[in-house]
């Protein structure tokens, strides 16, 4: 009787312990496997972030270079040309003082034009009215200027109670909108652009819509996006805003900017 019960208990002990140890092994194996996957994901995210930062740096350098080229070209083409004309007039006065009256008028007119151009360039570099009139004021002035050129029609509308934001935030929003409007004029072949600003309690929602050719599928895809749109997304990220690029039902481009305030 005893000899029969001993093997039963022994087998029970061995099998039971084996099963429990197998469970232990399974738990430890699962923990290690899971941590390996999580760490691998973390590494991939880190690599993506490094790639993102690299892309951001390239976008920043490109945008700086573009701005420098634009300022340089404007200085060369307008200010440079006008200063040359002033120099020529001054030379004529020196060689023939009897022409002083006529030439001095021309010099004054060139100087006024130069001052105006320098003001425009400086205004483009930093919108002077931003501190006094705020983002809406400067934007209205900018839109008016474009509308006056007769090239394209932009309508700006606001809904809700407008508020003044932090000066940096206002500058970034203005720059994004300036770039969006500039791109729409340059690339969209649109005749009408509408800018809607909706002020909510915790968000400012801005929608820029045109009746042009819209985005290509590659431009909308975040992974294939070009540096221009990438730059806008990154500028928006600085103020924790989100940018959505899409096409309207009629085929035009629609950019939605959601800014926490």
């Amino acid at each position: 009787m005893e000899s029969q019960s001993t093997p039963n208990f022994l087998v029970l002990l061995l099998i039971g312990t084996f099963i429990l140890l197998l469970l232990c092994g399974a738990v430890i194996f699962f923990v290690l496997l899971y941590q390996r996957r999580v760490l691998q994901n973390k590494l991939e995210i880190q690599n993506l972030q490094t790639g993102h930062q690299k892309k951001l740096l390239i976008a920043t350098i490109n945008s700086q270079e573009k701005e420098r080229t634009r300022v340089g070209q404007e200085l060369h083409d307008s200010v440079g040309a006008m200063l040359s004309a002033i120099r020529l007039n001054m030379k004529m006065i020196t060689s023939d003082p009897s022409q002083f009256g006529k030439n001095s008028d021309e010099i004054t007119s060139y100087l006024d034009e130069t001052i105006e151009t320098v003001r425009d360039i400086s205004h483009n570099l930093y919108p002077g009215g931003l501190k006094t009139f705020g983002m809406i004021g400067v934007l209205k002035e900018y839109v008016e200027k474009i509308n006056n050129s007769g090239q394209i029609k932009i309508s700006l509308s606001t809904q809700g109670e407008t508020r003044r934001l932090n000066s940096n935030t206002e500058l970034i929003i203005f720059r994004i909108l300036q770039e969006l409007l500039h791109n729409a004029i340059k690339h969209s072949r649109a005749s009408d652009i509408t800018v809607k600003m909706e002020w909510e309690d915790k968000f400012l929602d801005i929608e820029v819509q045109d009746n042009g050719v819209g985005f290509t599928s590659d431009q909308i895809d975040p992974t294939k996006r070009g540096l221009g749109l990438y730059n806008k997304s990154n500028r928006a990220e600085v103020i924790d805003a989100k940018v959505f690029f899409k096409n309207t039902e009629k085929g035009g481009a629609c950019i939605d900017l959601q800014i926490p305030i």
Binding site: L13, L20, I28
Partner: peptide, 27 residues
């Protein structure tokens, strides 16, 4: 974890471990 989980069966059968024969005790 391995120590305590692996010992559950031994602690459960500890009375048999001491009352039965040597092979069971040794195991």
């Amino acid at each position: 974890f391995i120590y305590f989980t692996g010992n559950i069966m031994i602690f459960l059968m500890i009375d048999y471990l001491y009352s039965d024969n040597y092979s069971f005790f040794n195991t």
